[in-house]
Amino acid sequence: MLKKISFTVNGKALSLEIDIRESLLEVLRTRLGFTGVKKGCGVGECGACTVLIDGTPIDSCIYLAVWAEGKSITTIEGVASKDGELSKVQQAFVEEGAIQCGFCTPGLVLTTTALAESGKEYTREELKRELSGHFCRCTGYNNILKAAEKSLKPEEHQCACGHHGEK
């Protein structure tokens, strides 16, 4: 059965007819071409397909596309600015060496983005718990945690004087 849904992806309003059995992952990847959304298990175990739905990280593989009606979706393609400037979270992942094969990266960047945008403070252990829905087999998570901590740190004072942070 087909159903028409309207939703926003990366700030752009879209309407399309979908098969009601389709997952949001399938619609995003194969109909809309957002191939940055990765499929690692298809059953909500690995976190690779995470997107933000109204700001909340969700496994898009176990989220039916029909449920996205009226929602605002952010995929990894919508994280950097339009002119290609990386977000603070993306920059932190690059700088901290948190990327290896890159397959878990989009999901982790999106979850970290949600944490950063929440404005809350997290202890190391809390941060680990928040990120524990994402498997990564390459990095041993150490640099991912560093990147997440860097992403959540308030903006540092940086000026020509060469001092960083508080004096």
Binding site: F34, T35, G36, V37, T75, I76, E77, V79, A80, G84, L86, Q90, F93, V94, G97, I99, G102, T105, P106, V109
Partner: peptide, 10 residues
């Protein structure tokens, strides 16, 4: 990494 930006932007 030469592929860092490609990977972090999807």
């Amino acid at each position: 990494r030469v592929d860092a930006v490609a990977k972090v932007t999807g």
